[in-house]
């Protein structure tokens, strides 16, 4: 799964730690999501989308291999 969390975070000008605190996860988790190492759960993906005030589809997209 691809995502634009890093781009959205840069637009909002916040650190990984700030995003992690807002969502309620660890900074390690945010880093893993951004680098594609971890696929978030539906709840976490919805929380991230709501935080950035965007739709889930605009932030998370299926990969060709998915």
């Amino acid at each position: 799964m691809k995502n634009t969390v890093r781009v959205e975070r840069a637009i909002k000008d916040i650190t990984q730690q700030q995003l992690a605190d807002a969502i309620g996860v660890s900074r390690n988790t945010i880093n893993s999501i951004e680098s594609g190492k971890y696929v978030p759960s539906t709840v976490l993906a919805l929380k991230i989308a709501r935080y950035f005030d965007k739709s889930t589809d605009s932030i998370f997209q299926l990969d060709e291999n998915d």
């Binding site: 309620g24 996860v25 660890s26 390690n28 988790t29 893993s32 971890y38 978030p40 976490l44």
Partner: peptide, 9 residues
Amino acid sequence: KVEDEMISG
């Protein structure tokens, strides 16, 4: 120290 869904995974 911090427990979240990734740690649970």
